[in-house]
Nucleic acid binder design. Sequence first.
DNA 1: GTGAAAGCGCTAACAT
DNA 2: ATGTTAGCGCTTTCAC
Lengths: 354, 354
Amino acid sequence: MPVTIRDVARTLNLSVTTVSRALAGHDDVAEATRQRVVETAREMGYVPSHAARQLRRQRTETIGLIFPTLGSRFSDPFFSEFMAGIGDEASRCNHDLLVSVAPPGEEEETTYKRWVNSRRVDGFVLVRMRVHDWRIQYLTEAQVPFVAFGRSRTSDSFPHIGVDGGYGMCALVEHLVTLGHHRIAFIGAPSALTLAQDRLNGYRRGLQAAELPFDPTLVIEENLTRTGGYRAALTLLQYTPRPSAIIGANDLTALGAIRAAQERQLTVGRDIAIAGFDGIEAGEHTHPPLTTVHQPVYEIGGMVSEMLIRRIQRDPLEQEQVLLKPTLVVRQSCGAAFQPLTKKEEGLLRKTHR
Amino acid sequence: MPVTIRDVARTLNLSVTTVSRALAGHDDVAEATRQRVVETAREMGYVPSHAARQLRRQRTETIGLIFPTLGSRFSDPFFSEFMAGIGDEASRCNHDLLVSVAPPGEEEETTYKRWVNSRRVDGFVLVRMRVHDWRIQYLTEAQVPFVAFGRSRTSDSFPHIGVDGGYGMCALVEHLVTLGHHRIAFIGAPSALTLAQDRLNGYRRGLQAAELPFDPTLVIEENLTRTGGYRAALTLLQYTPRPSAIIGANDLTALGAIRAAQERQLTVGRDIAIAGFDGIEAGEHTHPPLTTVHQPVYEIGGMVSEMLIRRIQRDPLEQEQVLLKPTLVVRQSCGAAFQPLTKKEEGLLRKTHR
DNA sequence: GTGAAAGCGCTAACAT
DNA sequence: ATGTTAGCGCTTTCAC
């Protein structure tokens, strides 16, 4: 039913070859012919069959993205923004986005392998990197291009964009210390994730810099969800003396903590300081608005996408690894009125060589 | 590089035909042969080339989903849950999900047409239906299967799952009236969306049932985002007398309204009632938790996905149109302590013929 | 029960 | 500057 290249060729009394080359803009076809071909193709509504092209060129023009859902509800806005960033940039380069959701484990593995083996995608965007991440070795050996958002301990030499979570957390702790806090709790992420270690280390460095003791009971590991943050905060708020500040490993966690505090009749920003990491939109709309460490997720999605497409096309990357500095965003949940940031706190978005 | 069906055939000294049929489970191949083929294929790590299969069968086993992002930030959890529902069900049926994000308009149209013309997907899931929706006619004429989440005025005879937003809003108004409210404001959605009219009508019906007057100044049209809800609520809260309750066309809007109220030092649930529609997770974690009209978005995603795949495979649907009744979820943002619901309010999830 | 051959729609190497 | 031919990897007649 749909019009093929042969239909166009027949209509013009030309060979399919010529039509193909005219459309591809090769220079060995007469300008007049090219014009006619392009014109007619448009008129006839010809669009190349993706499948045929794929088979012939051995390229899918498709990027794979598998979201590691941790809970049954998949609603971290972090992911949607990231996806939008990848998708927009991919579109710009005429690539599409194949998406799947699978919790880390067998199903995830199956999906990666299926897409690799059936040559379903040209490459992958990896997200939520793990400390030991089988995907790195697997994709490297399978020679499938990938670019990750996040680092890993498995290897350091794969293309990725990282965000210096340690730096961000450290700056956040410093900020809290400046405001007079010295019992600062930390609700962490699953320790298998790189970002968990990263951010926890930053927290510890921050304490150290302020010569505050590290108290392990003030650290609770949770799962990066609102519910997790809520649960952990309930525990923390029972301590005596109560921590005067709680940092969530991400914003969702912090939002859960805010809820817990409010249920306990505490006024956030006065009775207790709460802060997060990510800079999701929801944090701007809590009461009071959430102090956080912001990483430009949409933009990072775009950069990762661009890097991946370059790799797929074998354009060399000018930088294989990028480390971004996140930005401290001071709002009212820590009690600070808006005030000039210290130089260190400013930490504007910057690319740095590693 | 990857192993093809010919490799398997050669290894076994069989023809590709036989291998193909053995793997497809046809019954005209000897059981012993089948066993050997299956075994060897597995050992060799053979996975059929998706492109080749696609070309041959003229089927992509792929579902298209284009998200209508309204703002630059794409973060309505409604969409992620919906996507997860579609994706999970699709996986179960061995289908993949091709995703794009494009605001309604030219870019959106281009994407739909590109995917249709290049036979990139077997069908579409449509979301955020418009009162006049070009997609319905276009896809119908192009003979591309689709299933929508939501109704439209363009036509009523396309396969879709609708949620009776009118019913939900009406129940919500009734509930508020029961609690003593009679100045109930409504922050609506862009009127081009079907759900906007639907929910607004329900609001009006609810007022009517309670013999309350309809006051147009109490209705503000916004864009379904937190920021929109915030903006509209700021306006509403300046009125004297102040509305005693605000309904948001969706939860995000309501969350924005909560923020506005809290900034004005109002205690939500006491000084003012606020409610939404959707039942996103964030609503469980506001302070106080948000009263809302819940629609099971994840499950609906699954149902839509299943319906679409049936259509693609030309299995007849037992029901082309489904209308679900949403559920009123009473929490504290309207001041109601938890209490038994009235019979009408119960409105449990039910499929109904239209 | 198995194999040979055609063809899905396209691109590219090789003529002319 | 244009056409002929082969082939990407698979499924499916049709013959044996």
